[in-house]
Design a protein around this nucleic acid. Structure first.
Lengths: 223, 223
DNA sequence: GAGTCCCTATGCGTGTGCTCGTGGTCGAAG
DNA sequence: CTTCGACCACGAGCACACGCATAGGGACTC
């Protein structure tokens, strides 16, 4: 899941970035409003976190510009204590959630999870396909009730696959959302990690869930 | 916006009807499958919500019958928790969305909005001609509900044909769009691949969809 | 130093894309 | 109706790119 954070206070921004990365999100940090909007329009993020008070362009303007382009990506706005009245305006302008500074980082993470959950195709917070279960809140993965240990990247990849079950996911799509980098033709990281996941999830089971769509990409499916 | 709801459980049906009416939709409620299909064909609805488990005629049959009549109205199917595998079939058969019971009414309303929004601006996404269905999102192709496996090139060619149903497509046109290269007179790749497609799509069926226009090119047509 | 984790690099098998050549079909002209 | 040439169908077969598997190096932690 790829997240854009637009925050001008370097310290706060880096802190948020680190916290999100530890939760296996791909994070882009931007300290300038205008540049942040540009990034938001250029890349297909899963979530955007934006501070209201920014140099060059306010968070509210960014939000409005994004919505004007019909981009439905969930947006969370960060406000200072003194900007309480701005919240309502923000929600009206199409924000999905707000958080008042200073905040506990745990609360931010919880709200991020909630927003991503709401945006996903499935209603429950727990992702499930066949007997494979992923709980984003605890980052626990089980298959057939049996616990599966995953590394950060493995988990990030699986979560992305599970949030788009039944759809063909191309390498560029995966690269963009799981590795926050543009597609580099000369690497096979994705193949390698799909292979890791297969070893832990499908290996030795009759029902395979990870499918290769030759020439296109990969797909998670119970069929 | 006029909505048809086909749901046999009176309580659930009335609940949905009321909720939709509160959102100012015009709602027709029907508790019987066969009657529901009749209504769907008779009236030009903007959206159809249909339960999978119904007396006299399943939601899936209704869906298929509607699509067979080339009606592109968005359809949302309601499934019980235990019918998860039916979803995929439903989407394959041309459903636009599904919702698992029990659901929050807010979610149903949100999805209804999303479907109507999509229908207004964007294309339906699923391509269909006669009983041949192509879903670009999943890269899945079925004919008469039966899955057809295609290679990359075969799929690309079929998608191009389906996006221009009923029009004669010359070899240069096909070459340009599917092979994105200029026409090379000294190759018969296109003929070969049309042949591959015929084997997988028309072979053994009474109704041929791929037609040769001698001296010009090829055409996909239900006639 | 041992243990992870992330990523790169390489070799291998197989499915896919494409060419070639022959035989078949269609349609116009005689 | 017959003939002939252009056009198309289709099986056989080859080369190679794609994706899989696995080994190993670099960075980091304990």
């Amino acid at each position: 899941m790829r997240v854009l954070v637009v925050e001008d206070e370097t310290k706060v921004g880096c802190f948020i970035k680190r916290a999100l990365e530890e939760e296996s999100y791909a994070v882009d940090l931007c300290e300038d409003g205008a540049k942040g909007l540009e990034m938001a329009l250029a890349t297909n993020y899963d979530l955007i976190v934006v501070d209201l008070m920014l140099p060059s362009m306010s968070g509210m303007e960014i939000l409005k510009a994004i919505r004007r382009e019909r981009i439905q990506t969930p947006v969370m706005i960060l406000t200072a204590q003194s900007q309480v009245d701005q919240r309502v305006k923000g929600l009206d302008a199409g924000a999905d959630d707000y958080l008042t500074k200073p905040f506990a980082i745990d609360e931010l993470l919880a709200r991020v999870r909630a927003l991503l959950r709401r945006g996903a195709t499935e209603s429950p917070g727990i992702l499930q396909i066949d007997d494979l279960v992923l709980n984003p809140a605890t980052r626990e993965v089980t298959r057939g009730g049996q616990r599966i240990e995953l590394t950060l990247k493995e988990y990030a990849l699986l979560e992305y696959l599970m949030r788009h079950t039944g759809r063909v996911l191309t390498r560029p799509m995966i690269s963009e959302h799981v590795w926050n980098q543009d597609f580099d033709t000369f690497t096979n990281v994705i193949d390698v990690y799909v292979n890791y996941l297969r070893n832990k999830i499908d290996r030795g089971r009759s029902k395979k869930l990870i499918h290769t769509i030759r020439g296109s990409g990969y797909m998670l499916k119970a069929d």
